[in-house]
């Protein structure tokens, strides 16, 4: 479980996050939703410590992350897996080397054991036999999947995904969402996913937090979200029009 308490974050002239308190549950895919520029990425980066926050506390399974020493932070980060918006694969390394990287850095297993683990993870994301390709040779969806394989290679307890399906076609997007959901359940991780995609919300939003202008405006599940009594959230959800029709039909 991850708990955020009274988080504030500002850049020079702009308050980006204001008094965010929320908890994310283990074994579930927790979503942070909101339109572009609402502060999702900044929130996620504050949670994992890539950005310093101005005020507030983050707890990982009850342990206060904010007050940890640099050494302790480094240690707990080995239990993190993160999927960045642009995949952020290391350009100079092959697919296999990308996925192996963390194993090489932090474990002393034999080469064969590591290879086995790498292949297991690549199989999980349906990318068998791509080991020797380089990131520049992959499609957007494949890169995202390699990034997922890299994120889960050391059995993380916490998985963070920033817009995992941005820039992908709808079918691939759904596959990626499914994959994240399945992995989360299978390995009982605490997963936080940033998205502005309503399909994802419906697909995997067991717990949804809605951010608007840097403030938390709503939280609940995807089942409750259709009937939420919140003007901005309502506009956000039904922006597509199709859903609006569906809702009318339902009534």
């Amino acid at each position: 479980m991850i708990e955020v308490r009274n988080l504030y974050k500002s850049f020079e002239d702009q308050d980006v996050l204001k008094d965010i308190s929320v908890s994310f549950e283990q074994g579930k895919t927790n979503l942070i939703i909101g339109k572009s520029g609402s502060g999702k990425t900044v929130l996620l980066k504050c949670i994992v410590g890539l950005l310093e926050m101005d005020r507030g506390h983050i707890f990982y399974s009850g342990e206060c992350f904010t007050e940890m020493s640099a050494k302790e932070k480094k240690k707990i980060r080995q239990k993190f897996g993160m999927l960045f918006q642009g995949a952020a694969l290391f350009d100079s390394l092959s697919v296999e080397e990308n996925v192996r990287f963390k194993l090489d850095m932090f474990t002393s297993s034999s080469h064969a054991e590591k290879t086995k683990r790498v292949n297991f993870c690549l199989e999980k994301v349906n990318l068998k036999d791509t080991n020797l390709l380089y990131p520049s040779e992959l499609s957007g969806g494949m890169r995202k999947r390699v990034a997922i394989a890299r994120a889960i290679v050391m059995n993380p307890r916490y998985l963070f995904c920033d817009e995992p399906n941005s820039g992908l076609d709808p079918q691939t997007a759904i596959l990626i969402d499914q994959l994240i959901k399945d992995i989360t359940e299978e390995f009982n991780m605490t997963t936080i996913v940033n998205t502005h995609d309503i399909n994802s919300v419906m697909e995997m939003g067991e717990k949804v937090v809605y951010i608007h202008n840097g403030e938390k405006r709503w939280e609940g599940s995807n089942l409750e979200i259709i009937d939420a009594e919140n003007k901005e959230l309502h506009d956000f959800i039904f922006a597509s029009g199709i859903l609006r029709h569906l809702k009318k039909d339902e009534i």
């Binding site: 980066k45 994992v48 890539l50 932070k73 480094k74 240690k75 980060r77 080995q78 993190f80 993160m82 960045f84 918006q85 642009g86 952020a88 694969l89 290391f90 350009d91 990287f101 963390k102 850095m105 932090f106 963070f160």
Partner: peptide, 17 residues
């Protein structure tokens, strides 16, 4: 610089490197 703007540096940091 490219590693910075494509978040590869963040990816290293998040691994605890």
């Amino acid at each position: 610089g490219t590693m910075r703007v494509t978040e590869q540096i963040d990816a290293l940091e998040i691994m605890g490197i």
